[in-house]
Design a protein around this nucleic acid. Sequence first.
DNA 1: GCCAACGTTGGC
DNA 2: GCCAACGTTGGC
Length: 151
Amino acid sequence: MRYWLIKSEPTEYSIDDFKKEKSVKWTGVRNYAARNFLREMCPEDRILFYHSSVKIPTIMGTGRVTSQPYHDPTQFNPESSYFDPKATKVTPRWSAITISYKETFPSPVTLYDIKNDPFFQSMILIIKGSRLSVQPVSKNHFERIIKKGYA
DNA sequence: GCCAACGTTGGC
DNA sequence: GCCAACGTTGGC
């Protein structure tokens, strides 16, 4: 079992949307490094749900992976803003997974919290210049974040 | 709204 | 294959 963090702008898709829908196809990832991580995901892997591009960037809660990786359907759809003319059914480029909502933290964990706790020093999230919207998280970091989320 | 850091594109 | 120009991310 592995642990991941995914970023979402809450104006696009928030944890409340996630809670309401229960399950969502995580499509539209258009960065190769992030895509490669999507391809490593397995059902039951755990997900931290992060709100980005807001005043107080915050890890809001968790979910879990409920599918194998599959071809992101939006890449084939000319109507979609994620349409990729260079992707074909024979040579698809982009991947997606389905995730299910699990919980919203009673005390969400802010980026500020993470940055100010030496325990999280090596987290990809706070490595300068890192902009990965899908990233692996260590078991230790994941568990400590859950603990903080309920503190 | 600014801008640093990265990623991608395309001419050569 | 290099690299300049452009686009995007995302914290501040």
